[in-house]
Design a binder for these strands. Structure first.
Length: 876
RNA sequence: GGGCGCGUAGCUCAGCGGGAGAGCGCUCGCCUCACACGCGAGAGGUCGCAGGUUCAAAACCUGCCGCGCCCACCA
């Protein structure tokens, strides 16, 4: 074993070996309790970014642990066809070849997308493997594959038959750049600096005017009404009359509607039913006509007044303002006026509320209530719990969901139309119209929103709608791990569809993690230059290092997760530390499955190691059961580095090198036993290095991935050993501090006598050789702390006694100054504790053990004060 | 307009009723026979501010101040 761990040699080897051996293949017939996670399918166009790396690390951690715990663990991988994203990528490719999508035609285009998918798509799969993820690749799925396409049709038809899917001409969120409708969740609202313009409409009969305010002046070209609040006295007389449109001379009516806020602006609002959701509603109630003045690219069409034809929305806005100014119709302009504007989640264009012909919708009324309930009655729980509330609130306010997209890449809507306008919705492509039998059918040109197929993911991947063994075994999934950014887009919809179509929650626990940000909490972006590429990090530091640093950063408390190259470097250092601990152990340990020596041969160090390891087990399990990844990482790090290596290995070394062969073998066996079990605990987080080292403990092959998760053993808890060990640590640390304080060379050797509690004398004496070595004191001896100290020597305190050192080693004045400072601290402590005990309320109301603790403090502080006085006297 | 989260060491964060912790950074000393990707020792914090509850508050309550995020049809 070389002194430096080389992940680039180890990791690819194991990644390949695991797959070759097929050890992550799940067997629904095993009879074991199932534990299933389906991966949030990355886009087929995607490459692994740190967000994936985080989510995949956490999932792998859970699935590997479950597998070791004896569950039939299935981590089902796959990819999403990602409608718009993929279509855009392929369109760009075509454009490079000078080919236009429309000229190519639909079928040829879709073929090209498939071809692209086969050759370039799915790079991310290889990257996920490189991360060490223990997915069952034999079950890999794609949202557009045959089975999932069948699931999509089944879901569509069932919901259609149940009246949960309908077609209607509604206002949709239209992206003029991507030229498709979007669901509400795909619209990102952002505050934009606009202006609020108030202008006048003249009454048709010339008897006056009414003023209205708007941030979207150009839409006045499509105004078909003015609305006022029915209770607004100011305008009561105007309701029913008309105003004249200044540009095309139309007369448009003034109507009353309760939606209008009397206190906003002038209390009168222009109504553009075809381009504003509120106005659309008002028009529905009051019978105002729709007037669509935009084309699909949001430029003014010929429906509007002639002088504005062809202008884009923004130019039209200025043009209308100028035209109104010329008519002297502008009352006021307020700017900048901050207001929220919807943007496309993909291309960031401003969304246009637009009537784009007939669109398909999911009626959510009957879906959302069950989905809300399961979060309240505990059938579905969120981790951390605080996500429950936003989820429930979102469900309550959910509105019908537009599922048709005007794209070519995706699941085509399974609806066909005959020349008479009958609609046939079917699982299989129909030969004839279901209503009139006409064979002249045309399929709806639109495709489904990709979230429509991904909402089925937790069960469609398991074989639904067939009643497969996988589905029966692995549904509901145990847990879903994903980022909060798709809580509504994806998580909420899976719950609705799972409950509706499979009659159960899709997963029992939803673990919601934050966004990975840079070291200072800023979003990673190309323009900031702070993007961390996980593949580069794997190349430089290893996948284990990346995984560990991600897990350690994934705290439950804060919303987002800061990541720095330095922290990944820290993960690498940790791996190296573990590697070297293994090197040391295997110098003394012959290999094979470790077995503890009989209890009567356990030394103090053995007992301490076993007790500390026992505590670690409880910590790791306690943390992981609550999805506190950072806490478990921290516990493992602290144990391995600060306890096992710093003290366990150092204290055990004497026995390993000692003359007693059997004792040496015992020491090695205990180290090996504890280390091997710790490797198992660490394996889900750092699979590669633990596997590589663990081979030394495996009697002939096998994989740590299939080893048993360590169980608790109360027999190893040992408070007595921990107390004795603490005395030793204190003695050694006291001498080290003394040495450092007085700048004594690390190589300088001097005598030392430790005063320890009588009960610990034997324990300390048994490890005198180690104290000599670790503290650099020769010879070292221990006496009862109440013993007289050698005249002329001086002492330093430990928490349970003292260490006495020969004269002439150090600067007396400096030591005195230090002692005086410590004396001040001790007496202040004594004062505080005494005051507390003097407080009647404290003695009466505080818990008895707390009072007792305070009494002990007084005792200790008193002793310490006496000890310090003695030491000061010794100094002279 | 509603909601959520966060202000603790120089930085990033744990702690969430009984005497403040970690990693990184910093200082000092060490190539000590597993590891310099390391070892040993340190410095550094009126726990955002103000009230309140309590014998006891970094933690619980209220109000401010400051940051971040989500939701929302005031044109």
């Amino acid at each position: 074993m070389p002194p430096q761990y080389d992940p680039s040699e180890v990791e690819p080897r194991w990644a390949a070996a695991w797959l070759e051996r097929g050890i992550f293949r799940a067997d629904p017939a095993s009879g074991k309790e199932p534990y299933c996670i389906v991966i949030p399918p990355p886009n087929v166009t995607g490459r692994l970014h740190v967000g994936h790396a985080l989510g995949d690390t956490l999932q792998d951690l859970l699935i590997r642990r479950a597998r070791m715990q004896g569950y039939e663990a299935l981590w089902l991988p796959g990819m999403d066809h990602a409608g718009i994203a993929t279509q855009v990528v392929v369109e760009r490719e075509l454009r490079k070849e000078g080919i236009d999508r429309l000229a190519l035609g639909r079928d040829a285009f879709v073929e090209r997308v498939w071809a692209w998918k086969e050759s370039y798509g799915g790079q991310i799969v290889e990257q996920i493997k490189r991360l060490g993820c223990s997915c069952d690749w034999s079950r890999e799925r794609f949202t557009m594959d045959e089975g999932l396409s069948r699931a999509v049709r089944e879901a569509f038809v069932r919901w259609y038959d149940a009246g949960l899917i309908y077609r209607g001409e509604r206002l949709v969120n239209w992206c003029p750049t991507d030229q498709t409708g979007l669901s509400d969740s795909e619209v990102v609202h952002e505050d934009v600096e606009g202006e609020l313009v108030t202008f006048r409409y003249e009454l048709s009969d010339g008897s006056g005017a009414i003023a209205v305010a708007t941030t979207r002046l150009e839409t006045m070209l499509g105004d078909t009404g003015i609305a006022v609040n029915p209770d607004d006295e100011r305008y009561r007389d105007l309701v029913g009359r008309t105003v004249r449109h200044p540009f095309d001379g139309r007369d448009i009516p003034i109507v009353a509607d309760a939606l209008v806020d009397r206190d906003f602006g002038t209390g009168a609002v222009k109504v553009t039913p075809a381009h504003d959701p509120n106005d659309f509603e008002i028009a529905q109630r009051t019978g105002l006509p729709l007037m669509n003045i935009f084309g699909p690219d949001a430029s003014i069409n010929e429906v509007a007044a002639e002088e504005f034809y062809g202008l884009n929305r923004y130019d039209a806005r200025s043009a209308v303002r100028e035209a109104l100014a010329r008519l002297d119709a502008i009352v006021s302009e307020e700017r900048p006026y901050l207001h929220a504007v919807g943007h496309c989640y993909r291309c960031h264009s401003e969304i246009e509320p637009w009537i784009s012909g007939l669109q398909w919708f999911v009626a959510v009324d009957r879906l959302k209530e069950p989905a809300r309930e399961v979060a309240l009655d505990g059938r579905l729980t969120f981790w951390p719990e605080r996500w429950t509330k936003p989820y429930v609130a979102w469900m309550e306010n959910l509105r019908d969901w537009n599922i048709s997209r005007q794209l070519w890449w995706g699941h085509r809507i399974p609806a066909w139309y005959c020349p008479d306008g009958h609609v046939t919705v079917a699982r299989e492509d129909p030969e004839a119209c279901a209503t009139c039998g006409s064979a002249a059918l045309e399929q709806d040109p639109d495709v489904l929103d990709t979230w429509f197929s991904s909402q089925l993911w937790p069960f469609s991947t398991l074989g639904w709608p067939d009643d497969t063994e996988d589905l029966r075994t692995f549904y509901p999934n145990a847990v879903l791990v994903t980022g909060y950014e798709i809580l509504y887009l994806w998580v909420a919809r899976m719950v609705m569809s799972g409950l509706s179509l499979v009659d159960d929650v899709p997963f029992r626990h939803a673990v919601i993690h934050g966004l990975v940000r840079d070291a200072h909490g800023r979003k990673m972006s190309k323009s900031l230059g702070n993007v961390i590429d996980p593949m580069e990090m794997i190349d430089r530091f290893g996948a284990d290092a990346l995984r560990f640093s991600l897990a350690r950063a994934a705290t439950g408390g804060q919303q987002d997760i800061p990541l720095s190259v330095e922290s990944i470097e820290g993960g690498r250092n940790f791996a190296n530390k573990i590697w070297n601990a293994a090197r040391l152990i295997f110098r003394a340990y012959p290999g094979g499955t470790p077995e503890l020596p009989p209890r009567e041969r356990w030394t103090l160090v053995d007992r301490w190691l076993l007790a500390r390891h026992e505590a670690l087990l409880a910590e790791v399990d306690g943390a992981l059961d609550r999805y506190l990844f950072a806490e478990s990482a921290q516990a493992l790090y602290r144990f391995l580095w600060s306890e096992f290596c710093d003290w366990g290995l150092e204290m055990q070394k004497g026995r390993l090198d000692g003359s007693d062969e059997r004792d040496g073998a015992d020491a090695a066996a205990v180290l090996a036993w504890v280390f091997e079990r710790t490797l198992r605990l660490l394996h889900p987080m750092m699979p590669f290095i633990t596997e590589e080292i663990w081979q030394g403990f495996a009697g002939g092959g096998g994989s740590i991935a299939l080893a048993v998760w360590p169980g608790r053993s109360e027999a190893h808890a040992d408070a007595e050993a921990e107390a004795s060990f603490a005395v030793l640590q204190d003695v050694i640390t006291a001498v080290r501090q003394f040495r450092s304080r007085h700048r004594l060379a690390p190589t300088a050797r001097f005598e030392a006598v430790a005063g320890v509690p009588a009960a610990e004398l034997e324990a300390v004496a048994s490890l005198a050789e180690r104290v000599e070595r670790l503290a650099g004191v020769v010879p070292f001896s221990a006496v009862d702390a109440s013993s007289e100290r050698a005249v002329g020597w001086t002492a330093v305190s430990t928490s349970t006694g003292w260490v006495s050192l020969p004269p002439g080693l150090f600067d007396v004045d400096e030591e005195r100054t230090r002692l005086l400072r410590e004396r001040d601290e001790a007496s202040a402590q004594l004062e505080r504790s005494r005051a507390k005990l003097a407080n009647e309320g404290f003695r009466a109301k505080a818990a008895p053990e707390v009072v007792e603790q305070e009494r002990e403090r007084v005792e200790r502080a008193t002793d310490r004060l006496a000890e310090l006085d003695a030491q000061l006297a010794e100094l002279g």
